[in-house]
Design a protein around this nucleic acid. Sequence first.
RNA 1: GACCCUGUAGUGCAGCGGUUAGCACGUCGCCCUUUCAAGGCGAAGAUCGAGGGUUCGAAUCCCUCCAGGGUUACCA
Length: 497
Amino acid sequence: MTTPAIRVRFAPSPTGYLHVGGGRTALFNWLFVKKYGGTFILRIEDTDKERSTDDNTKSILEGLKWLGLDWDEGPFLQSDGVEHHKRVARELLAMGKAYRSFATAADLEAQRKQADHEKRPWQRDAPSRALSTEESDARAAKGEPFTIRFLVPGGEGATVFEDGVYGSQERKHKDTEDFALLRPDGSPLYNFVVVCDDIHMKISHVIRGQDHLSNTHKQILLYEALGKKPPEFAHLPLINAPDRSKLSKRKHGEVVSVTTYRDKGFIPEAFRNFLALIGWSSGTDKEFFTTPELIEAFSLSGVSRGNAIVNFSETDPRQWTDRKALHLNAEHMNRMPLEDLLPMVEAELKSAGLWNASWAKAGDRREWFSRTVDLLRARFITLKDFSGAGRAFFDKTYPLDPLAVEKNIDKVPSLREWLVELASRFKAIPDFKKDSAEVELRKLADELGIKAGLLINGSRTVTTGVSVGPPLFDLLESLGQDTVVARLANALTFGKG
RNA sequence: GACCCUGUAGUGCAGCGGUUAGCACGUCGCCCUUUCAAGGCGAAGAUCGAGGGUUCGAAUCCCUCCAGGGUUACCA
């Protein structure tokens, strides 16, 4: 017995951008290949010409690239194989394993209604199915339009397969309808093309969403009719919205699109980590995974069977996506090697127009940049925070959080004067460092008979515009004496008008 | 309607015949020489969808029901 080479594919249809469910399916295929070795193929299922667009294809590739899920072959366009698909359909027809269905859409609709009325399931176009070969040929020759449908075997037979996640699956032939292979215009349909292409590409393992679990039986019928051995199948539980409905851009907005996560400052590795945790577990308590760790731990046996919900709020911006995703991103940002993070922060600052050449690799402020990023990352959640909450570190001007001003400055009437005084104390420090700054600040607090916290909160707000960030004295040292003094000296008018 | 899949805290997962039913996110509280969305400690939160069995013993096995999801397209 020979074990065929492992060949898996991700086959999205370009009827939309890459959504989180698709991203997760791609990730699992990718992990499978990385873990066991093999070839990862990308195939674009563009058989529905009405809904497929090049823009969507582009955005899918973009999403995949950002996610770091590189493929070995492709992208292949399914539509390139149409002639082959048609040929196979004709073979099936010639072998008597498929038949021409002359019913129009309206006929079918009537048949279905009738079946419904009689409380029996509609499964096939019985009139066409009963046609003799001669009559069928004659009507086709006359130019009458027809659909080619698969002739599902009768009798008590069943299709059986062992799913890598859901276990043994069985479906009686009588529960499967005579699904269509080719439309009247000759274009092929999904269940048929998938099988043609998977055979053609020698796919060994099909890992895809659970919405295809039922389709698998039809596909197996096709493999059997074509005399081919079906691949191994593994289906993944679906990812739904908080209301348990399918994720859709129209209903749920940008949160379902993979590229949104890129645009909102996610780190690819963190997002992979999050995606992996939906519907999969290593079987241990471990949840933080670098990608090599993920590959090592990955196994189909860890995939769960229940559909999952990705939790997000459409009204609370702090919860625009699942908190766990956000948490994982913060964690990865904190724990990843600093040298890997620096280019990402650089890119973010550049796109925000805040980049300064002296911070570049060979720049004279590189060391400062590196230390500051290191300081800031402990409390940041996404890359966006470097240009947002961290703006005061990278730009002369920075927005003020009115709430911070209210809470940390305006609550104490004389605080503004005290901060100006603090500025002159700081100015006099010969060697401005976090320790010397702290000594000076606490000394002033003592003299004034006030809590150091007041000055701490106040100077944080004045120097950074926000109420959260790194420990104050670290922050002051990073900003540097001149900047700190200048900003504090402005305390009287800070945040006014 | 038919066929199929699933059902453990708000969410994601552990658990596979004997545990005070674990972990993480989130929530709440306390601590961090009175910053903070970081860190530390702690708490609340699950009659394991419901009801019947089997068993000395069931979240774990069986049956029924219920709920959610998928398929039932000349969508994918």
